[in-house]
Structure formats: structure tokens, C-alpha cells
Design a protein around this nucleic acid. Structure first.
Lengths: 229, 229
DNA sequence: CATCTGCCTTGACCTAGATCAACCGTCTGG
DNA sequence: CCAGACGGTTGATCTAGGTCAAGGCAGATG
């Protein structure tokens, strides 16, 4: 593992508060993979052999049915560690992971990680906090699916995309494929397209990947955002 | 806290593997509440002041929109601890909790718990494992919502209700209100009713709260259960 | 015993969003 | 330069499941 990768790892939410010497120890046993778009990182039902830390790029966690139907459960961005629960519980993966755009991924072997977790309270603490953060993200997503319409989910997504802006105008440059965003939001690309259209009524103007928002507060109000996310 | 409650607490998944003396310390600062059906345990957006451990009964975790619309995210059964993430992160509740049937709940103050977590690796470890288990439950639920139809979710629910039976016939006696189950499964009571009806085609016979299943394996196949839950 | 209230079921209807199909830019490789 | 391939848009249609309204039934209450 290169020094620059080691540094990136140390800035990750999961490892940020872990003493450097523990990180170093884990980094020694780890390696970094660069994978192209479309690569399958691991498969639902498989044994968890590595903690994956996304240094750069984007990956999708997708659930599959027995009949081959798939859905995107979550999209991981640079800095995210997955899939810790499977490692802790020594349980098979609940989802597959697919690379959405060329990614650099640190692979930390499960065995040494489990041992380090048991020996280093700091690391276990970091793991617990990381899990707690993800728990909230998942809960938020369930709330989204259960009590927001597709239009509202799109509005909520856009407004979290510009979370630094409290109110007033904003401009977004969406770099993800629309199909991935749509899948994450639990809708088809067609519906995403129509929703973007629909949002013109609350001051959202779109031109390709560039999206102009007249007033973020207005968009938030439409989405029914509760300030908890 | 009564001795019997203390014993129940010690059999909980969260506290099972925690050394008794640590449990005792927490139990001293804790108290037990008995609440009737309908009581509001805590409210979305509020500050997390207690870890709640459900000793007996059932509670629903419900998310709310700003306009008052609500949805059930999860139903907690006896033995479950909630809501740990809010306590760890000192973040406001993402959901409200409502008592679904008369419940006894151990209330463990957040401050002492946080301190104990930081001092006792065993406790932090137990917390991490508990969070990991819940993470998987939530992921499973998202997969359910995104790639199963209402009928299939009902089938899946029934088949997990009789998870001790691998195949062959089974009889269930559902003691929860149907409306709660329906809400948890993300559908209306009417749809639940119709789904139960529909499942007659795969050998499910229902009479009030008693449900007979001709062949659990057949039901599982219909639900597309993947053996991971 | 009669009434009421809450839970469940059933039927008729409606709508959000999926599906299917055609089409349009843009980018890539020959 | 042209031919695909790919990602996105748009329109037409279909359907799962929500909504609304009307009972039915059982347990609580007078």
C-alpha cells in the first residue's frame, strides 16, 4: 500500500480517530485494487474476506433476488468503508458490490481486522460509530421509500446535494450516471427524468448534467425535508 | 430495577456477552417503565436521553414527515435494545417510538452508558455487534421494499414467522394487530388482507388470526427467500 | 341484553409509477 | 466520415396497490 493511500485511509471516517500505529498495522496486511467500471467486487451470499475501503471512485451495493432481479441499496463514495457487519458477524454478504466508476479500493483482510478489533478498543469504537452512522443513513432511506413520492425523493436528493446552501439559488453539476441515482432512489431512469421535469414547478431548471435551483429552501419544503438527515 | 428485570436484561442480545458487573453498574442507574398501548416513548427530533431495552411487549419505531404522515420503520420485540446510534452519536432521534402493546421497558441513562462504553471494551464490542445485526435487518428491509411485491413481502413475513420449519406444514397464531404488521411491511391493512387471500393459491389457509400453511417450502419459493435473512 | 367501538374484510375506483417502444444526442472506434 | 453503442428523454399504455366507502364481527360497556 502506497504512502498516499495510507494517508487517504487515515482521513476516512472509520479510521480518522484510530491511533496511527493501529492503522499502520492493518495497512501492512492490506492491498489496494484499482477496478474499472462494471467490475464485481463481491457477490451476495459470499463469505466476507475483506473490509473494503473506497479510496477513490464510486461503488454500488446491490441486492439480488433469486430470479436475478437487482436493486441498488446504497451507493458508496470515496472514504466509505464497507462491509463491516458481515465481517463482525462472520456472516455471508447480504448484497453484491459493483464498481460504478473506476475505483481504488483498499482491501483489508478480515482475519487480522477481527483480531485488531478485539485487541484495540479504539478500533472497535470507530467501528461502532461507523455502524451507527450507517444505521441512520439506512433508516433515513427506509423513511424516504415509505413516506415520500418519487418526485419528493428526487427533490430531497437534489437538496442534500447542495447541503452547504441553506436557502437561495444553487447550481449542481451531477457527475453520476442518472440511472445510478434513479436506482438508488428506488425508481426507473424514466421516472427520474420526468421528476426532474416536474420540479420545474418549484424552480428547478435542468440542462443535461447541470441543474439550477432557484431557491434551495423552496425545494427543501417541497421535499418535506425534516432537517434530521 | 427488580432482580427479575436485571436477569431479563442479561439475556438480551445486546447484554448477553457483557460481563455481569458492567451490567450491574448500568442497571443501578436505570429504571423500568411499564407503558400501555399507544404511549409515545420518545419523539422524532428529540434528544436521546436513554437507551431503551424492551423487556416485554412490543414497540414500533415510526418515522414522520413534516406534514404529520407516519410510517412504521421497524417493530421491536422483547429483548431488543434501541436506539443506540442516537446515543453514540449524540444525535437527535430519527424516529418516534410508540408502544404497540403494554410493554416493560428498561431505561438506561445515556450519559453513564456513554461513559461505560468508552471504559469497557466488552460493552463497546457488544454495541458494535448489536449495530451490525440491526444493519443487516435494515438492509434486508430495503431489499424487501425495493424488489419484492406486497404479496411476496407477506409471504416472506409468514415464512420467517415459522422459521423453525424448513418444509412441510405449519400453523401460525399471529398475535400482533394486522395493521401493525401491514405498516411494517409497507402496505395498507386492506392490501395485507388481499394478500393473505391471494396466498391461498400457494396453500395458505387463514381463519382470523390462525394461519395454516400447507408447505412452508412452497411459500418460501413464492416469496423468493434467499436464505440470507 | 343491546349498543358501541375498534379491527378486519370486501368491493369499486383511481393514480403513481413501471413498462415498452421509439427517438435523439454524444462519444468511440473503424 | 460513418456506424454503433450508450445514456438520456418522451410518449403511450398498463397495473400494483392505495383510497374511499360500506359492511361484518367480536369484545367492551351500559
Amino acid at each position: 500500500m502506497k504512502a498516499s493511500d495510507r494517508a487517504t485511509l487515515g482521513r476516512t471516517p472509520m479510521f480518522r480517530d484510530v491511533p496511527p500505529e493501529i492503522c499502520d498495522r492493518l495497512a501492512i496486511g492490506a492491498f489496494v485494487q484499482t477496478l474499472p467500471k462494471g467490475a464485481l467486487l463481491f457477490e451476495q451470499g459470499g463469505e466476507a474476506e475483506f473490509l473494503h475501503v473506497l479510496l477513490e471512485g464510486r461503488c454500488g451495493l446491490v441486492g439480488a433476488r433469486s430470479d436475478g432481479e437487482e436493486c441498488v441499496v446504497e451507493i458508496m463514495h470515496a472514504g466509505s468503508a464497507f462491509i463491516l457487519p458481515a465481517i463482525l458477524l462472520e456472516a455471508p454478504y447480504l448484497m453484491s458490490a459493483r464498481v460504478l466508476e473506476t475505483s481504488r479500493i483498499a482491501m483489508i483482510p478480515a482475519g487480522p481486522l477481527r483480531r485488531a478489533l478485539d485487541q484495540e478498543p479504539h478500533l472497535m469504537r470507530a467501528a461502532a460509530f461507523d455502524l451507527a452512522r450507517y444505521w441512520r443513513i439506512l433508516v433515513q432511506q427506509i423513511k424516504d421509500l415509505k413516506l415520500r413520492s418519487a418526485h419528493e425523493r428526487v427533490a430531497a436528493h437534489l437538496s442534500t446535494m447542495c447541503r452547504q446552501t441553506a436557502a437561495g439559488p444553487a447550481v449542481l453539476n451531477l457527475d453520476q450516471e442518472f440511472r445510478s441515482i434513479a436506482a438508488k432512489l428506488g425508481m426507473t431512469p424514466e421516472s427520474w427524468s420526468r421528476s426532474i421535469r416536474q420540479l420545474e414547478t418549484v424552480g428547478v431548471r435542468s440542462a443535461g448534467r447541470r441543474i439550477e435551483i432557484e431557491d434551495v429552501a423552496r425545494l427543501r419544503a417541497f421535499a418535506g425535508v425534516d432537517g434530521l438527515q
